[in-house]
């Protein structure tokens, strides 16, 4: 594949029509969205699009030159199979620019039924090396892979050198510390997982409790964290709680923090990433507008003059304001983090 660097696509989340408009109006090159059901990995109450709304949203974006990617990235059980196939059919009818799939069976269906429909491998597909990606390019002719957030920068670079498909990486947003698509912590505690239900640590399993020792957050009864008075409380995503290991209480798996790649943007561009993704279909239109605007400015500056690119302090401050835990990390891109 020709690895000459082109314009890098800024891919922004569209959990609703106002969010989609916020992304389009603030400089996204592409938006990603899902149907209002369990076919996508942000199956949250009040989010996403039914058929008619999807048509309107897609038109709004495409008329303004912004591409639309539709995520059907959960894993259908045999009982759900027909419904997931119908979602793929619908996506094809709606003329989206690509579908983002995770399940190999569904890819097979899509590739055979809609050969013109472009396929992206979702982060939930869990392809962490070039051999895994080759499986999907050879078997289903995928056009792009979204890399799990477990790879270092040099590993990302190596993958881009070796694969015949575009590579999309996460640039900003809440961080999964586990390899996506192969984490069932959520179903262990609640019965619902990202793979089966499109949710992690679902809101319906969350209970808040005031007690003498502080404010407790529980997930299906399991204590995820306790917050002292005045201490800001975060959503009880179960890998981001404080636990007790050998008598030490700390964030044993991961702190509540957001991924932010601005510090290594020139390296990512130079490595040849095709797209940078912003996480957060569950977030507000204001978040989408805000993050899209900052990421657009940063990408434009970096593409203009990568040699002298430095993230402006006000960009970082603005992003930290909307970040989970109000702070950021380079995640696995940065080796010591691992």
């Amino acid at each position: 594949m020709n690895k000459t660097r082109r314009h890098v696509e800024l891919v922004c989340p569209a959990g609703s029509l106002p969010s989609l408009k916020a992304a389009v109006d603030n400089g996204a090159n592409a938006v990603y969205m899902g149907f209002r059901d369990g076919t996508n990995a942000r199956n949250f109450p009040g989010l996403n699009f039914d058929g008619a709304e999807a048509g309107k949203a897609i038109a709004y974006a495409q008329e303004r030159g912004v591409r639309v990617l539709l995520a059907i990235n959960t894993y259908p059980s045999p009982a759900q199979w027909t419904k997931w196939c119908t979602a793929v059919d619908q996506a094809a009818e709606l003329n989206v620019d690509a579908v983002i799939l995770a399940d190999a069976g569904l890819m097979r269906y899509a590739a055979r039924t809609h050969p013109q429909l472009k396929l992206h491998l979702s982060v939930q597909g869990s392809a962490t090396n070039h051999e895994a990606i080759s499986f999907y390019t050879e078997h289903f002719d995928i056009k792009r892979v979204v890399l799990p957030r477990v790879l270092s920068l040099s590993q990302v670079r190596n993958i881009i050198d070796k694969v015949d498909t575009e590579v999309e990486v996460f640039g900003f947003g809440s961080l999964c510390v586990m390899v996506e698509g192969r984490c069932v912590l959520s179903s262990y505690v609640t019965g619902d997982s990202p793979n089966t239900c499109g949710v992690c640590s679902p809101a319906k399993a969350v209970r808040w409790e005031e007690s003498a020792s502080g404010r407790k957050s529980r997930l299906n009864g399991v204590l995820i964290d306790v917050y002292a008075p005045q201490e800001p409380a975060g959503y009880p995503t179960l890998c981001k709680g404080r636990f007790d290991v050998d008598g030490n209480v700390y964030y044993a798996l991961e702190e509540p923090t957001s991924l932010n790649v601005l510090d290594i943007l020139p390296e990512l561009l130079n490595a040849g990433v095709a797209a940078i993704k912003v996480e957060g279909r569950q977030r507000s239109p204001a978040y989408v507008a805000h993050v899209t605007r900052v990421m657009r400015s940063a990408l434009d500056a970096c593409e203009r003059d990568p040699q002298h690119f430095e993230p402006k302090p006000e960009w970082l401050a603005q992003l930290d304001k909307v970040a989970e835990g109000r702070c950021h990390t380079l995640g696995a891109y940065h080796r010591p983090w691992q």
Partner: peptide, 26 residues
């Protein structure tokens, strides 16, 4: 993982382990 599936595919019979996502018949 699918990387190992890719190496084995078409060469020798293999077992698909618990960490490869098989959720449906297709």
């Amino acid at each position: 993982d699918m990387g190992a599936v890719n190496m084995l595919s078409g060469n020798v019979p293999f077992v698909v382990g618990p960490h490869v996502n098989v959720y449906n018949a297709e």
